[in-house]
Design a protein around this nucleic acid. Sequence first.
RNA 1: GCCGGGGUGGUGAAAUUGGUAGACACAAGGGACUUAAAAUCCCUCGGCUUUACGGCUGUACGGGUUCGAUUCCCGUCCCCGGCACCA
Length: 874
Amino acid sequence: MQEKYHPGEIEQAAQRHWESTGAFRAIEDSTKPKYYCLSMFPYPSGKLHMGHVRNYTIGDVLARWHKMRGYNVLQPMGWDAFGLPAENAAIQNKVPPAKWTWDNIAYMKQQLQSLGFGLDWGRELATCQPEYYKWNQWLFLRMLEKGIAYKKTQVVNWDPVDQTVLANEQVIDGRGWRTGALVEKREIPGYYLAITQYADELLAALDTLPGWPERVKTMQANWIGKSHGVRFAFPYELDGKREKLWVYTTRADTLMGVTFVAVAAEHPLATRAAQGNDKLAAFIDECKHGSVMEADMATMEKKGLPTGIFVAHPLTGEQVEVWVGNYVLMGYGEGAVMAVPAHDERDFAFARKYGLPIKQVIDLTGKEYSLDGWQEWYADKQSGVCIHSGKYDGLAYAAATDAIAADLKAKDLGDKQVQYRLRDWGISRQRYWGCPIPLIHCDGDAVSPGCGTVPVPDEQLPVVLPEDCVPDGSGNPLLKRPDFLNCTCPKCGKPAKRETDTMDTFVDSSWYYARYCSAGNNVAMVDARAKYWLPADQYIGGIEHAILHLLYSRFWTKVMRDVGLLDQDEPFANLLTQGMVLNHIFSRRTDKGGIEYFAPEEVALVRNESGHITGATSIADGGAVDYGGIGTMSKSKRNGVDPQSLIEQYGADTARFFMMFAAPPEQTLEWSDAGVEGAYRFLKRVWAFGHANRDSIVAKSTLPEKLPEALASVRREIHATLKQGNHDLGKLQFNTVASAAMKMLNALEKAPEDAGRAAVVAEGFSILLRLLSPITPHVCHALWLELGLGKNEGDDIYKAPWPEPIEAALVQDEIDLVLQVNGKHRGNVRVRADADKTSIEAAALTHEMAQKFMEGKPPKKIVVVPGRLVNIVV
RNA sequence: GCCGGGGUGGUGAAAUUGGUAGACACAAGGGACUUAAAAUCCCUCGGCUUUACGGCUGUACGGGUUCGAUUCCCGUCCCCGGCACCA
């Protein structure tokens, strides 16, 4: 045994051992409980960053812990390999996205392997492989058949200079990131998946997921946004035709307060009104330059223009003017909203700005309505009642809504309706590096009209993406590839064109967890093995995926179930949402108005008097750089920290231990490497202790009947700490598991030379190594073998049983209780561990400190918390 | 703007979920060992106050409930994540 801790040698040897013995190969086995431990697969951006280390260490700790507790564990890994960064890299370096992606995968895989994760690499997949994305295409066709997939128009960001569609991320303050051109909204056709057909089930099934964090379920429920309201119409006559303008509201009780109606710029009424109205036409045009992002819509200045068209109030017949509002979304609901300025904050501001009438129709006793400013209670639907509303006066929210809905129904102008905030999932992307949508456009020729859009027949799948394209930022390169583009129509056999849009990469990540279970199957998307492993017993990933990825995966699972592929309703039984690892962000505007990011090591910080960072300068060119605060480590913001140097300098175990020790998993973590030294020092001490006590431990002496008190106390500390550590593992709070291991070592190092020391040390160190092994598997593996702690010679530590505290070791005759007088800590009282309430009260009252602070007053009340404290109230 | 989460020493954090605030560490300061350095070991370490025992105060800020609040309730400020084409 080496005297010094050499992580490099230990780790390589352990990894070779696990590899050669197939320690983490998972085989379906119905005799054991299964544990499918799944971490979100990474996007192969180039290098791992600390967020990955955190994510995958959490997964590995759980996987190894369960393995030691007798579970049949599956922990797979793969690559979310399609996506925008590969195209950006291609633009920059002229390397095909495929090559860039595979090079990154090779490097990152080697990084993952050097961290010693217990992964079953035999199930590895990459979503850019035709054998994977074939099944995206296959299920898309099934959805098309079932009416879940359909075509409609979508609104995209259009860069008029590059003639290309931009991702939201590529739009900086309304301009294209590379060209600086003002981005336009453009409507183009695209394919949608009708996730709204599953809205009710996706919402209701949240109750079947007790293993999910409440906050994630709340976010998903709010995102789905089921609302009970009324859909109704404002009748009007225009160009000699009787028409209806439909709107939806959850505040039908305020219908009598409607003073105008607002429609989206793209609404047919707006288009009609713009004819012969240049000012309105110009405004509608201006709206088209706005952002498509909800956050921008919500924060931008609300603007509008009257159309001159009037509609009739459905109940009073009063004329109400139609306005065009830049804040009304065409793609959501009816593209029109009723405006009740008195009781809606946004309408209130809008009405004040344009001098529109405000009519109070809800009253709250004791409150006075004033037009001076918005007050929260104006929008309160809990406690107000209708006023100035004719026959509805005096009715509260529910009754007023019922009555008004009934009256609208009687007039055939509306009814109650349940609506969702959730929108259907648009999956078309006008990009190259993604899964081709398996459709063919048969446009016909001079003689025949053609077959239209035709699905690619199953036997022709996959539609393979050519891998040698190099995007240059100006549109989809597939459009310039006749070999991909030209094909024959499967229906009529005439020349036709392939669809060049690819799928949203969220499609790829919506079912990869099922594919791991069916690795290697080239005749089916998933097979019976998926029914064995699913749902994943633990899913671990960043909180940023709380809504979209997790909702899409839940949806996709339900579709796979309905197609007969799976039995499960839900993909993930338990979810751990990891807190983001944050780092400083530095950026600078480019000449063209785009944005350029700087890595933290590329800038020199500028701080103010109080030490806060206010800016930075580029080390390369000395120019000023803007400080963007702290944010998630990401490739695009260039603020990721590569764990490589940490691993090289201290080893994987130190990196893993440090990451787990730094904070509890769900908490956001601002990156700092302060403390890495401490983690390393601890592992060195563990090794040194094993080395120094080798003979005592190897001797395997038995515990004497009665230990001297000092050793009994060491043993008590070990078992008490183990109890806490096991409890914390159950809570997935790994930082205190790490500190439990540290406490154990502190206790063991204090074990005095006395009869029974060797046995106490051997037992204690065996517990310490097993508790620590999921976090730092390499050093524990090596020490376990060196010290012969296995049941049989050469048994690996992961085959050892998980340690449980021995109650007998925890027994104490006397305990200290906290003594309080009027809730203030005044000392401690020592009592027998089994003391009853009366004797505790007696001991407390006679205590010197109690006497002193009671100042002779009689006790009014004595609170005794068993095993904890006694509080005397005077 | 809306939805969700967070704010505790110089720093990362802990507190068995209403019961000793600061466990376990990092940094810093002091000391031991060493020719020296590294490594290692020991001591101190929220603030104010006291010669000392001790006392007062303190968990973003302002209120409240309670014998007792970091924990529960109301309000305010700041930070992070998401907002449907980053993944």
